[in-house]
Each structure stands twice: as C-alpha cells, then as structure tokens.
Amino acid sequence: MRERLSFYVKRESFLHNLNPLTKLVLALGLTLIGFLSPWYWTPLAIIFFIIAPLSFVGKVQRDFLNAAFRLILPATGFLFIMQALFQPVGKTELFSIWFLHVTRESLAYAFENATRIFAMVSSFTIFLLTTHPSELMSDLTHRGLPSQFAYVIISTIQIIPQMQAKAQTIIAAQRSRGLDTESSLFKRAGALVPLVSPLVFGSLVEVEERAIAIEARGFTSRHTKTSLREIPDSSFDKALRWILLLLVVAIIAVKIWLS
C-alpha cells in the first residue's frame, strides 16, 4: 500500500534538489508560455525540448513516459478528436463524416489546444514526480503561507490512503471472525454495513487525536517556527525564477505587440 497519495518518486537528482518553489514556478511558467505564445509550435517545442529532457535530468523518465502514454496522451488525444470534429471553424474541408465536417482550420486549432494541455499537464507531472508534497508545503509556509492552509492540503493528500489502510484492517478483523465478504455480491454489499460505522467513527476519533498531537507540538504558537529540514534556496534557484518570470512577461508583451 502506498504511504500517501502522491506521485513523488524518491531519486537523487539535480531536479529533486531544486527548491520546490522554483519547480512550481517552472511548471506554471511553462504552462503560461505554452498558452500565451503566439507561435504555433511553442507547446510542442516545450514538450520535446524542455519537459522530456527534464524528465531525464530528474531521473524520472520511466514514470514520466508511463504517465504520458497511459494518461496524458489518451486524454489529450480524446480532446483533439472532439475539437477537430465539433469545432465549426474554417472552410477548407478535408473530409466529412455524416454531419461532421473536419476542416483544416479545426484540425489545426484542435492540435494546438491539445499540445497546450499536454504541455501543461506534463510540466505539472514532472513537478509532482520530483517534489515531495510536504517539502513544498513546508517551503511555502516558510514564505508566509498560513500553516492551517498547508495542513489542510497535506492532510487531504494523506487521508485517502489512510482510510484505505484502515478499511483493510477492519475488513481483515471482520473476516477472521467469520464475516463472509468474498462469496456473493449480495453478501459483499451486506458486509459494507458493519464496515462503515467503525471507519467513520474511528476517523473522527483520529481527527481529535491528531489535533491534540499537533497542538502539543505548538501548531498554533505565534512564534516564528524553525524547521528541522532546511530547504535550500540557492542563488541559482532565485535566478531561474526571475528568468522564468521575465520570459512570461516577454511572451505577454510579444502577444500584445503582435495583436
């Protein structure tokens, strides 16, 4: 069972060692550039010349390709087909199926949109693959994000796998006391009933215990908190963030100037 609901893959790489905020800015920046760029091939160039190489730099190429082919490609492919078929733009008809007319323009439009979405999702995939969620949150709280907010995010990430694990142990306990959960569908549904109340009840008890535990460690204390783990923020990180910001601004400027 997975420890938490995160995509994080633990590796030792240049990308892993970047500051989490830098990676977040990188993902956001690439997304914005992909969407705002006036040049048609920009998103595709981002995918092939930035994101794909980055997955190798972060040593997560296998996980990335997995996600790309199994999830992102089918989803954007679907989007592409739908837009190509139903977008009523353009006049250069290529072919038509029944009442649907596929034009050169709708095809181009759909392709651009699909590559933009692909670039967005894949840049965030790289970000999630190489950034531990709690590292991101602790870095952001250090920069002034309210810790309550960080707590909500982190506990949401953790709660589903925890509930799953808890449900598994309760089911094991009930099965070993003769509750039939594996024969018929009807019995399986019936077995859900004794599962629900201990699961919900137990989780509520846990919320209280957790609140006590974090309060005992000074969660609501107003003093500045120090952190056990220092998350490095090098001058390279800062420079990279500035460069990305400038690039986004430049792209916006070009877009305005061209229009």
Binding site: R175, S176, R177, G178, L179, D180, T181, E182, S183
Partner: peptide
C-alpha cells in the same frame, strides 16, 4: 477455503 469459512475452526 475463504477466511470466513476458516473462522469456524481458527480464532485469531
């Protein structure tokens, strides 16, 4: 044999 059937003979 499913766990629920074994439970007749084995208590854990």
């Amino acid at each position: 044999v499913p766990v629920a059937k074994l439970a007749v003979h084995v208590g854990y």
